[in-house]
Simulated assay, not measured.
Amino acid sequence: MILCTVRYPIRTESDSLCQKQGSAGQGQPSLPFFYVQEFARLGTISAALLSLRKNMAENRRGKSGKKAPPLRADMGIVVLHGKEQYLLRQRLVQLRELMEKEYGGVEVFTFDGSSASMPEVLDECRSFALMTPAKLVVVDNAEELVKEDRRPAMERYAENPTERTLLVLRSEKWRKGRLDKIIEKSGGAVIKCDAPKPAEAVAFAMARCRKRYDAELEQDAALLLVERTGVNLSRIDSEVAKLSLAAGPGGTITRSLVNEMIGLSREERAWEIQKDLLSGDAEKGLLKLQELLHVSRQPEVLLGYAMTDLARKLTLLAAAQQQGENTRALARDLKLFWESATMVPAAARRLGLPRCEDLFSKAVEVDARSKSGFGRHSRSLERLIIEFCA
């Protein structure tokens, strides 16, 4: 299968300045279609930066906006939405425990919003519990239940929810609207359950280890744990449970124990090449490539993608630096944490925008050639490493 390439302009302010001065531009780089999806949709690097800033602002508003009220048993309706499954489960457990403590018992009914009807759910909410003094009605995939013409019926119920009944709407996606205001006005809450920031994940790991597993997780160990697992709280919790068993009751989990028991996955090892590319040492980079290819058995395609990803981030950061943008905020949105949060922006500043654009163009050209059957991919990766370190 031959990968189609397209001629697509990646313009920056420096290009516009050259045109105003009447100087010849660099031309339009030939990029494979797979890698220009982001820029093809946004049009320019400047537009890409604008989109990234918009996403960051929306995320900050979602996490630092009006604080959700404390959970209570008599809230009537609670909306739990977001992609962090651990938080979605924990909030529901907390609500159930509060109801059991308040009323002495609770009966739980669960519906799937993609298949349940609105009358079925609301009838259950309006009917009184028979075996217990209170009722907890949970609707998963709630976004599907309250779509368009169904939403007014839910709004009417939210204005006057049934006593001793708590309706919990859970969904990964949730569209804000009039329903949210009605829920909050009637004493309910709309709570976002998205993945935490890395620092918050570190604090969660340390607190969870101490309270739930009777072990002490050192801060350096927690930092390495989050670096290896990401900010997925469910995975962090399972890894902390495993580490606490190894440390023993009342034991201490050290950085060396985390390093021993939680290694990089096979896919994650391919990204080690980025650190060697940033070092500027071509010999070191070539040795790492041979190690990953012949010892770790990493796919050539994955290694090529890791290099292209680094070139893309360098280009965006270099463009932001040239335009006076806040590169620290941009680095967070590009998922650059710990050492990479300082190494990549520093490399972008050292290389400059024209050099970063050239690296990105050559990286996607290597990918296009490999998919078109031109030359040996390993040799192309070696040449690309030399370009990075030149």
Rank of each mutant, 00 (worst) to 15 (best):
Q219E: 15
L243A: 07
R151Y: 06
E239G: 00
L302C: 01
L130P: 00
L286Q: 11
A153G: 01
V240E: 03
S127A: 14
A363W: 15
W271K: 01
S186R: 15
Q321W: 09
V121M: 05
R228N: 08
S46K: 06
Q323R: 15
S279K: 08
L223F: 10
G82F: 02
L71I: 08
D15P: 03
I182R: 12
L179M: 13
A205I: 02
E58P: 00
E143P: 00
R91V: 01
L95M: 11
A320R: 04
Y157K: 06
S46F: 05
L381I: 04
S16Y: 10
S340Q: 15
E268T: 04
Y35G: 05
A319I: 04
A347V: 04
L381C: 09
R332F: 12
A331R: 04
E227D: 13
Q323S: 15
S171N: 08
R228C: 04
M1A: 11
I385Q: 10
S380H: 14
S171T: 09
V121R: 05
S372G: 15
D140E: 15
D74I: 02
L336V: 01
S279M: 07
G62Y: 01
D140L: 10
R7E: 13
L330A: 10
P29I: 04
D194T: 11
R235D: 12
V106E: 07
M154P: 00
S127T: 14
P196W: 10
K284V: 07
K67T: 10
P69K: 11
G352L: 10
P119F: 03
H81G: 06
F128E: 07
T12R: 11
E163I: 00
P161D: 09
R41M: 09
K66A: 12
L166M: 09
K362P: 01
V258N: 08
L136I: 03
L145F: 01
E339R: 14
F337L: 06
R376E: 11
C209I: 02
M343F: 10
Q94V: 13
G104F: 05
Q290L: 03
R350F: 02
D180I: 09
L17V: 10
Q37L: 04
R379Y: 01
L287I: 05
D333G: 12
E291H: 15
V6R: 14
P345N: 07
N326H: 12
L303Y: 00
D149A: 14
V190R: 07
S378W: 06
S30I: 14
E300F: 00
G43K: 04
E283N: 13
P70E: 12
I45W: 13
P198K: 09
V240P: 00
P69C: 09
A346S: 13
K185T: 13
F388V: 07
V106R: 02
E102N: 06
K284N: 12
A246N: 01
P345L: 09
E107A: 13
T132E: 14
G248F: 07
R178D: 04
S244C: 10
R255Q: 12
N232A: 13
Q298R: 02
C193V: 04
E272S: 12
A47N: 15
F33Y: 13
L287C: 07
A189C: 08
Y103C: 10
D237H: 09
E300G: 12
L42T: 00
E155R: 10
R228E: 11
P196F: 10
K197N: 05
R269Y: 03
A68E: 07
A341K: 08
P32V: 00
P119E: 04
A347K: 15
G104T: 03
S127R: 14
T229A: 14
G285N: 05
